[in-house]
Amino acid sequence: NQASVVANQLIPIQTALTLVMMRSEVVTPVGIPAEDIPRLVSMQVNRAVPLGTTLMPDMVKGYA
């Protein structure tokens, strides 16, 4: 099973992502693949992302 990127904390809207905000976890449905974590650093979320939420491509500006 492929690991996805999951929020390690509440990430407020417009926040630039850092490594400490994300973790990898095998979840359903599958979100952004964990191997993309380095690419996500400094990208902004376009909505508030609660703790434990799987990051989906449409939540990160410039990802999809």
Rank of each mutant, 00 (worst) to 15 (best):
residue 11 I to F: 02
residue 26 V to L: 10
residue 8 N to G: 08
residue 39 R to P: 02
residue 34 A to R: 05
residue 7 A to S: 11
residue 28 T to G: 06
residue 45 V to F: 00
residue 18 T to W: 04
residue 55 L to I: 14
residue 8 N to D: 09
residue 54 T to L: 04
residue 28 T to H: 09
residue 7 A to H: 02
residue 43 M to W: 07
residue 63 Y to E: 03
residue 30 V to Q: 15
residue 57 P to Q: 08
residue 26 V to C: 08
residue 58 D to F: 12
residue 64 A to T: 13
residue 14 Q to Y: 15
residue 18 T to L: 08
residue 19 L to E: 09
residue 6 V to A: 03
residue 26 V to T: 11
residue 12 P to D: 07
residue 45 V to H: 02
residue 26 V to S: 12
residue 50 P to K: 08
residue 4 S to P: 01
residue 52 G to H: 07
residue 49 V to Y: 03
residue 8 N to Y: 04
residue 10 L to C: 14
residue 25 E to Q: 07
residue 17 L to T: 01
residue 40 L to E: 00
residue 26 V to I: 14
residue 27 V to R: 09
residue 35 E to M: 10
residue 57 P to Y: 10
residue 11 I to V: 06
residue 63 Y to R: 03
residue 50 P to I: 07
residue 23 R to H: 05
residue 52 G to I: 03
residue 12 P to Q: 12
residue 32 I to S: 01
residue 15 T to Y: 06
residue 30 V to P: 11
residue 42 S to N: 14
residue 47 R to S: 15
residue 43 M to T: 01
residue 3 A to R: 06
residue 9 Q to W: 07
residue 15 T to L: 05
residue 38 P to W: 08
residue 36 D to M: 14
residue 10 L to Y: 14
residue 43 M to Y: 09
residue 26 V to D: 11
residue 21 M to S: 03
residue 63 Y to H: 04
residue 46 N to E: 13
residue 19 L to A: 12
residue 35 E to T: 12
residue 53 T to V: 14
residue 22 M to N: 00
residue 15 T to Q: 08
residue 30 V to R: 06
residue 48 A to G: 08
residue 17 L to G: 04
residue 13 I to M: 15
residue 27 V to M: 05
residue 21 M to G: 02
residue 32 I to V: 08
residue 20 V to K: 11
residue 21 M to R: 00
residue 44 Q to P: 09
residue 5 V to P: 00
residue 57 P to H: 07
residue 8 N to V: 08
residue 28 T to S: 15
residue 2 Q to T: 14
residue 64 A to E: 14
residue 30 V to N: 11
residue 19 L to T: 09
residue 16 A to F: 14
residue 13 I to V: 13
residue 9 Q to M: 14
residue 25 E to G: 10
residue 15 T to R: 06
residue 46 N to C: 09
residue 10 L to P: 11
residue 56 M to W: 06
residue 57 P to T: 05
residue 37 I to H: 01
residue 34 A to C: 10
residue 53 T to A: 12
residue 19 L to Y: 12
residue 2 Q to V: 14
residue 49 V to Q: 02
residue 12 P to N: 07
residue 8 N to H: 06
residue 34 A to D: 08
residue 15 T to I: 06
residue 58 D to Y: 13
residue 26 V to Y: 10
residue 61 K to G: 07
residue 45 V to Y: 00
residue 4 S to H: 02
residue 6 V to W: 01
residue 29 P to C: 06
residue 10 L to H: 15
residue 20 V to A: 14
residue 47 R to W: 08
residue 55 L to A: 02
residue 1 N to I: 15
residue 50 P to Y: 13
residue 32 I to M: 01
